[in-house]
């Protein structure tokens, strides 16, 4: 009975939620307008011809489509933006570099990639040559019996480091929400249960692959028959992984797809050369002032931006500042 619930029903529901959820999130993001051009830049913008740009400027402040693609690829594979927040990570007093997040994130994500590639052997028949080779290389085949997969241990280490960082560093502890901890604990539970299954309480992998192959062709009858004969430790791993799949699209883990939709990353910094049209603008050919700008409840219109209109828009605010003798007091809450 447990096998039928956790081995057949839960994974079907989880995969359906994952696929529909991810596509829903993609379309939801794609439907969101980006009214302003907001690339974050860390380099010299393309400007007058005598202002030189180095290769770093081209990727930090991209101008062309290819430079933007280069920045996205470096962001996806190198996580460069995690190295950029030096105001946060460089301690001004002790001059210590505390950019642990980048190191731990690289450790975790690349281990996860290797682990996912290795798991493809339960879904692909015949098992691709490169999957077997990759497994044998990372296990240093023949050194340990059974083979110890380095990525399987590194992913646990990486997750623990990421989690301990949230627990022991005071600023990160303050910033952390329950969902941040939950995602890490869930991933830790999956990876640790996987390692336990691999090294201590063995499960019959041939049955596992048989179950998955039958699930894939919707042969529910056979899958149910097999599901009941697999060891319980497998279901600990399998159900937690199913929960992760179902949780994925609606959590912060969706940054895997969200990085592609980040306006601060995927927009070229060509604001001065090309006009960015606000998609909410009903008629971009008409200047915004001709349509009217509402400031403080009053709508101002003029054919083009002239000083008098601009001044009249903000006169009240300027008068208020003058009344307070040009001293700005903190807002009272």
């Amino acid at each position: 009975m447990i096998g039928v619930i956790f081995g057949v029903i839960v994974p079907y529901i989880a995969v359906a939620i994952f696929v529909v959820g991810v596509i829903y999130r993609f379309i939801n993001w794609a439907n969101s307008a980006v009214p302003l051009k907001i690339p974050t830049t860390g380099g010299q913008q393309k400007s007058l011809p005598f202002i030189k740009r180095t290769i770093y400027d081209r990727f930090d402040s991209p101008y062309t489509w290819w430079e933007t693609v280069g920045r996205m690829i470096l962001e996806i594979f190198m996580f460069r933006s995690l190295l950029k927040n030096t105001r946060y990570y460089l301690d001004r007093v002790s001059q210590k570099d505390a950019r642990w997040l980048w190191l731990f994130a690289i450790l975790f994500h690349y281990s996860l990639l290797l682990v996912l590639i290795r798991h493809s052997r339960f879904f692909l028949q015949p098992v691709p040559e490169f999957v077997e080779m990759l497994s044998e290389i990372e296990a240093f085949k023949g050194v340990f019996i059974p083979s110890v997969y380095v990525s399987g241990l590194a992913i646990v280490a990486g997750l623990f480091l990421l989690w301990l960082r949230r627990i022991f560093l005071s600023r990160e502890r303050t910033l952390s929400l329950p969902s941040d901890h939950f995602a890490l604990i869930l991933l830790l539970a999956i990876t640790i249960s996987g390692n336990i299954m691999r090294y201590f309480f063995k499960a019959d992998l041939e049955k596992v692959k048989e179950l998955l192959m039958n699930l894939m062709v919707f042969d529910v009858g056979k899958a149910v028959a097999i599901a009941d004969s697999i060891e319980p430790i497998f279901y600990v791993h399998f159900v937690l992984a199913s929960f992760l799949l179902a949780y994925f699209p609606f959590s912060k883990l969706m940054h895997a797809g969200g990085v592609l939709f980040t306006p601060t990353r995927n927009m070229p910094n060509d604001n001065r050369a090309r006009r960015h049209v606000n998609p909410w603008d009903s008629d971009p050919s008409v200047p915004i002032l001709a349509k009217g700008i509402t400031v403080g409840g009053k709508t101002f219109t003029s054919k083009k931006l002239d000083w008098d209109t601009y001044y009249s828009m903000y006169t009240d605010q300027l008068d208020e500042i003058a009344e307070s003798d040009y001293k700005i007091a903190p807002e009272e809450l």
Binding site: I23, F26, L124, P126, M213, M216, V217, D219
Partner: peptide
């Protein structure tokens, strides 16, 4: 992007279809 995601997630389907090994 959506098509690449679907093709990537459902790799076993087209891979096993090419190898003709469904439910082997």
């Amino acid at each position: 992007l959506i098509l690449i995601f679907l093709a990537g997630f459902f790799t076993p389907y087209w891979y096993n279809a090419m190898a003709e090994s469904f439910g082997y």
